[in-house]
Each structure stands twice: as C-alpha cells, then as structure tokens.
Amino acid sequence: MTPDRHEIAVTVNGMAYRSTADARLLLSDFLRHELRLAGTHVGCEHGVCGACTVLLDGIAVRSCLMLAVQADGHELTTIEGLATDDGALSPLQTAMHDHHGLQCGYCTPGILMTVTAFLEENKSPSEDDVREALSGNLCRCTGYQNIVDAVLAAAAAMRGVAP
C-alpha cells in the first residue's frame, strides 16, 4: 500500500509547525520523532498508562490514541511548553520538585499535562478529586502520595494561599 501522506499544520507550545506525515503516524510519534519534542513519553500505546498525555486545544488527551493528521489545525501543549521562556517553572512543576513527586520521571510528562488541565477547571480540589484526576496516569515509582501532595500544593499556590 503506497503511503497516504498528509500535510499537517499545528501549533505546539505557541510555535507553528508545518510537516507531512503518513496517515497512520501516531500523534505521539509525530511529536517525538518528527518535531523532536521528545519530552512527551510513550508507555503503552493503548491508552492506559497516560505518559503520552498532551493538551489538545487545552484538553488532556492521549497522544498515542490520536493520529498526527488529526491534530492538523489544532493547538497542542506539551511538557516543553510548561515553563516560561526564561525558564521559570510553573507552579505545578515547582510543587512536583518540592514534594518529590517524581522518581524516574518517565510518567511525569503525562502527569504534568493531565494536572495542568485539571487545575484549570478545578481550583480547589480535594484529595479525592486529585486522585480521581490522576487515575488515568500510571506511575510505578512514587505510590502517588507525593504527586497528590504536589498537586494540592500547586492548587494552593495558584490560588495564592499557603498550602
């Protein structure tokens, strides 16, 4: 079967990209290997582990369960887009560092993207809310406790109150 190539124009972390890709190229592979934004990680390629989570027009989605061509005309945000241009970490990134919310760091990109979208919608989450929000992201290292604490602290910091 001759490759079915498609033009793709996307904005990723505020930067416009134009590229072409096979119809079957997964969005995760496109980000990592075509755009060389390798901060998005791939863990299962069947939509369970959540490591590949990115924001599509601000909404958290599995990039392994989308085709690159489907992103044409959309805005994406990845882990590379969370810190400011001068390198300042986002409140969530800072809280993850402060609370030891990562060990090997492989699931971390997906967790950051999932929670970034979650905190946009839920400014004052309970611990149960946070655990529910994290339930689609597998972490094998941390036992989640420090991630939960980091998310609660980030929410507090974003509200401008001491955690």
Partner: peptide, 8 residues
Amino acid sequence: DRRLLTGQ
C-alpha cells in the same frame, strides 16, 4: 528534577 520536569 529540573531536567525531568521540563522534558529535557
């Protein structure tokens, strides 16, 4: 952490 948290 910093490298891991920024995708680097």
